[in-house]
Amino acid sequence: MHQEYTVIEGDFTNAGTASSSVKKTLKQLGVAPQIVKRVVVALYEAEVNAIAHAYGGKVLVDIEADKIHMVVADKGPGIPDIAQAMQEGYSTARPEVRDMGFGAGMGLPNMQKNVDVLNVTSEVGVGTTVEMIVNFV
């Protein structure tokens, strides 16, 4: 089952569109609530990242009977040092983004905590792709 969403730069009002829709699908499938929550939290973080840091991007979701595969690919500045970005509290968010309550430097670490597989690939000046897998059982 494939779902696609477009993320627009700076459009925080629509942060959570993809995660809400995925949440509904997982509830229909009867996936355990704790797992649904992990998926939703991770995907929401990834959506916010693409909105806050990049010039927009795409969310590609593939749901199978035993797992969910999510890719959030943005066009943006990229991450020069991924290991550093994975540390809690490390943030490059602009002040105006922080004022909105985002950019506390918990994004990637929070995704890491909630998913079974996390792959972050990035090219400076081109963009970042976050790939996440959560198993249902």
Binding site: M1, K27, Q28, L29, G30, V31, I63, E64, A65, D66, F136
Partner: peptide, 10 residues
């Protein structure tokens, strides 16, 4: 939830 069984729900 559409079905108790996840693959049938799918």
């Amino acid at each position: 939830t559409l079905d108790k069984d996840l693959s049938r729900a799918y």
